[in-house]
Nucleic acid binder design. Structure first.
Lengths: 198, 198
DNA sequence: ACGATACGAGACGCCCTCGTATCGAAACCC
DNA sequence: GGGTTTCGATACGAGGGCGTCTCGTATCGT
């Protein structure tokens, strides 16, 4: 039906990819400009405005295009092994510029652009948390996690993700520490107080 | 010695306070403008440029003026009680707009402005972490914390602060949950695995 | 009193961005 | 081929920030 020349799908993809690249390179949202995006993407400004109403709409689309990069495959050999892989994944994501820069920017924009945050949370964060929640429920089912903790899975997810998240978020210099995830997991499993069956 | 009219100390204070207020209100760093600051502070632009070389220098000074708002007094009745107060303090800070907005902005600017981050980290974050590290060392000394964990206090601090930090950072809607800090502390102390002396 | 400096206010030129419009070329349907 | 739409490129006016400068006034040392 559409009469004239059809839109080139590659163009839209190229633009979104450019936006994500710029964010990954550390460009704050406020410094993202339509002209800069067009320049970097090798695209005419008219093309941008033909497809998106403005910067907000473009960013919104870019958010939806952030590929939740394949949740890790859990080894399944033991609950602890699975947890180590999950925590290690958080660490790797923190080191990946694309993911961490995106998250940092989203946290900053959370107040000023609630819709953007909602979208990002829905397409990226919610999935990760849900996967972890499933793992924890499995842990409860097999007796590796105290059953009464199941009453607040959200808190449990925060407890598991928090330490590694803050560590990677605050430390750019993150040295490659061997066995870090294992040590974090052991802390998560047994806590810091003595008297455990460690 | 200085000949002419002396600088009004109140002016400098007023400007810095305005900057911190704007940040607290959610203004991203990129949207902070010298003209906007002058306007909000009721100050001439010339005054800004007379005292600071540019926006970066002004922000740098503002960082140094962030008052690490008095570390909490620990009850000292028990290690667990102290820990609860420490964690509860993190929660309250997360709800305080000024603190959380500042932290979010700093995380975003970390890459683009390392000097700014270094300053903020030194004047604010380092002190908080040091205080918590002291508490944990005390815990080790009195046998409330497994002694072998003292070999990596930084990790321990991340483990204690992480859960509440991520929870407050990601959740704007943070409902006032009764006893949240206590539950987090118990997780920190005993972990999620069964077999503890809880 | 006099010179020097600080103050708030605002004008100035420069540059960048926004969103729109126009251009020639290209790609599609009828 | 004719009509239509998209493409990259570029020009345009409006708006705003930057950093400098100039006003008139105020406040200090000498």
């Amino acid at each position: 039906m559409p009469r004239g020349r059809p839109r080139d799908a590659a163009v839209g993809h190229k633009v979104v990819e450019t936006v994500l690249r710029l964010i990954a390179e550390g460009t704050p949202f406020g410094d993202l400009t339509m002209e800069g995006i067009a320049r970097e993407a090798g695209v005419g400004k008219a093309t941008l405005y033909r497809r998106w109403a403005g910067k907000d709409a473009l960013l919104l689309d870019a958010m939806a295009a952030v590929d939740s990069p394949a949740l890790p495959v859990l080894p399944g050999t033991s609950f602890r092994d699975d947890l180590v892989v999950a925590v290690e994944t958080i660490r790797k994501r923190g080191l990946a510029k694309r993911d961490s820069a995106m998250l940092r920017n989203m946290l900053t924009q959370m107040h000023n652009n609630p819709e953007l945050w909602r979208r990002y949370h829905g397409t990226v964060i919610a999935k990760r948390r849900a996967a972890l929640a499933r793992l924890l429920e499995h842990g409860i089912a097999i007796g590796a996690v105290r059953p009464e903790l199941g009453s607040d899975l959200e808190l449990l997810v925060d407890f598991v993700t928090g330490p590694m998240l803050t560590r990677t978020a605050f430390r750019e210099d993150a040295p490659l520490e061997q066995g870090l995830s294992e040590r974090v997991v052991d802390l998560i499993l047994h806590g810091i107080a003595p008297g455990d069956d460690t």
